[in-house]
Amino acid sequence: MARSDRSSPAARETIPEAKGHRGASGRSPKNMVWIPAGHFLMGSEDFYPEEGPVHRRAVQGLWVDHHPVTNAEFRRFVKDTGHVTTAETAPDAAEYPGASDDQLVPGSLVFTPAQWSGAAARLPAVVVVGP
């Protein structure tokens, strides 16, 4: 169905995948599609050892936007809801013992020693040539 077909109130009320799944207003959220709960196989036996074993996982049903969200739409969403992204939230010091305060800032990426050693093991050797 084209995007415009789902944007009308009548169309939102008749989307089969949304039947019985309404937003807080009791209606289907505008320009969104309901993805029902289901199962999928997570992991891989083909690449890195930490990606295995392949195992079955369950996922709850969720709403997704029918089309990619624009910056303007996301800005409106943040303004309307007060949503704060993960990138705007400082990492919790309790989850990263030993991390310095200058590492625990919004937008930072902090690895535990085990995560770092696993990542470092996969990095190619680098030769630095300098003056």
Rank of each mutant, 00 (worst) to 15 (best):
G23L: 03
P29R: 03
D102H: 13
A24I: 12
V33S: 05
R12C: 06
G38Y: 01
K19M: 02
R122W: 00
P49E: 09
D80K: 11
R6V: 12
A18Y: 00
V54F: 02
R3T: 02
I35R: 09
P91H: 02
M1H: 14
F77G: 09
A24W: 03
G20S: 02
G43K: 00
I15T: 09
N31C: 03
G20M: 04
A37E: 11
L109V: 14
G26A: 06
A120Q: 13
P9D: 07
W34Y: 13
A120R: 14
A99Q: 04
K79G: 09
G107T: 05
G52S: 03
G118Q: 07
A114S: 14
H55W: 06
F47E: 05
T14V: 09
V126R: 14
N71K: 14
P29A: 03
Y48G: 11
M1G: 15
G61H: 06
S25F: 02
R3D: 05
V105F: 02
H66G: 10
T85R: 12
P97A: 05
P106L: 03
S117Q: 15
A11V: 07
S44N: 03
S25D: 15
S8M: 04
P124K: 11
P131N: 08
T112S: 10
P53N: 04
E51W: 10
M32T: 08
P97E: 04
V105E: 02
E95H: 11
S8T: 15
A58M: 07
H66D: 10
A120W: 04
T86H: 11
L123G: 05
A120E: 10
V64T: 13
G23I: 03
I15N: 10
P53V: 01
P131S: 12
M1N: 12
L109H: 13
R122S: 06
E45P: 02
P97F: 01
E17I: 07
P53S: 06
L62C: 14
E17S: 15
H39R: 14
V64Y: 01
F77T: 07
A18K: 03
S100Q: 14
R27W: 00
P49V: 03
F40Q: 10
R76A: 14
P29E: 01
H67Y: 12
E50G: 11
